[in-house]
Design a protein around this nucleic acid. Structure first.
Lengths: 268, 268
DNA sequence: AAGTGGTCTAGACCACCGA
DNA sequence: CGGTGGTCTAGACCACTTA
């Protein structure tokens, strides 16, 4: 049973574009927004429970009387809200039932976040196994005694003499096999794990703080000793909160900046 | 002079869709990605400097031989990367010249970002009007000559002698009225504006970088002179990209940490 | 009034996934 | 193989900003 998303618009298909009757108060005026809100309501109400698949696009198009482009735009909004995720060949899955302050919404995909590694490479100077002591356990949020393959390196931009950062990777024994690929590629570590082991990253936590760059490292990074830098710890988690890998990077001043953007696209 | 984005695709316009010859290694195979990469290169090279407008969409379509939808998809990617921002009726403005390491973009909830202001207050030591010079205009992404109410302060945690940060607020003349509330409350500025003027924050951009804390400020902050700290610039935008307020905060080492969490689209 | 980006349709080919 | 989402075109009307 088709649903209409009309508010005050003309139905005549000859007039292709929407003719939203917009009050001054911001309402959902566009079709894709009305459609998206409808989906959100259905998800919040439990009609599409977490883990379930949304109806496929053709069905949504027919049901709501929208073109596919508009449907896709609406679903894209839900993806931005962190309510659903999509996968080609499979479908659109509900991953959260509520939008709210507790839902950090992934506005961008991991791939977009790390598109920067393209054109960079790691220069590894040390590899070895370590056991997490108290301090490392706290840093990586793991158990004391946990073993890690520790890979110390500097990251360079291609055709650039100056290192971008000092980066230490901590890789679980289960994924030791990727070490052979670390030096050559410009893929993020999490992609290597996904490719070679099929375990996908579900969650990334990134902590940013300030530190003073030690003298020895400063020489290699070509910055002043004890100059300020950013310390960035990234923790990649897969399903079941299993740790896939971690990285600890140190960036000299002005060589790196975290830019976070929050968009209020859907709130009242 | 039009540019072609061809790699190995058929040119026949009868075959509407792209026929990318994708090697196993991930390359930019889609047209909009190639187009986006081309734009990124032009921005990085300075052909489109920060603050400049990109060519309008029709021009990009003609120049690259792409449909408008594809062009928009490419530009959308740049928006997600935080390189440009768009405004209807105006154009697409370059807001950052470097992809990659210098720029992350993601999203969390506003409330989560500012949960820390609870139990803190501002000790204001200076108030006054300033006109944005070139440098300030760049920092706040406003026009040169724009007037701001500048409020300089230190933020304290209640029952704590040590300041949390040095904070400078930049408030537009239109919202001058909130200055009387600044000293007493522990609400973020954006909440005051929303409460007293009804203008909601639609967009927040937060840039985090490292800096060396100047001697004079270090004394007041009770930290070592020239010790590392975090410089956090927050820009609040309302509808139409109107600037609601800005703040520039400096945090001594270990007194503040940015913690961001991303979630991947698809749970395996 | 002109020009910008925002939305929308109709129809098409494609890559990917699971049965 | 059939069905999913991903990309693409051609053309249209609209809302917004600026001059």
């Amino acid at each position: 049973m088709p649903v209409t998303l009309e508010k005050t618009r003309k139905k005549a298909p000859t007039k292709a574009a929407a003719a939203p009757a917009r009050s001054h108060l911001s309402q959902s005026t566009t079709r894709y927004e009305m459609f998206a809100n409808s989906l959100v309501a259905d998800i919040e109400s439990g009609r599409y429970p977490v883990g379930a698949l949304l109806p496929p696009e053709p069905e949504l198009c027919a049901h709501y009387g929208l073109s596919r482009h508009t449907v896709r735009e609406g679903v894209r909004k839900l993806v931005d809200m962190g309510l659903v995720s999509r996968q080609q060949g499979v479908g659109t899955k509900v991953i959260s039932a509520q939008v709210g302050p507790n839902n950090f919404s992934a506005a961008t995909s991991l791939e977009a976040l790390f598109s920067y590694v393209g054109g960079t490479y790691l220069e590894i100077y040390e590899e070895g196994w370590v056991s997490a002591d108290d301090q490392l356990a706290r840093l990586l949020d793991c158990k004391v005694g946990q073993r890690w393959l520790k890979v110390s390196s500097y990251r360079y931009k291609q055709n650039d003499q100056q290192p971008l950062s000092h980066t230490v990777l901590y890789i679980p024994p289960a994924y030791e096999g990727i070490r052979q690929y670390l030096g050559e590629v410009n893929h993020p570590v999490y992609q290597l794990i996904e490719k070679h082991y099929g375990h996908k990253v579900q969650d990334l936590q990134m902590d940013v703080s300030a530190l003073s760059i030690p003298t020895a490292m400063a020489r290699k990074l070509q910055c002043r000793p004890n100059s300020p830098g950013l310390l960035v710890v990234r923790r990649y988690r897969g399903a079941n909160d299993s740790g896939l890998s971690n990285s600890v990077s140190i960036y000299p001043q002005s060589r790196f900046q975290v830019s976070i953007r929050y968009r209020l696209n859907w709130a009242a």
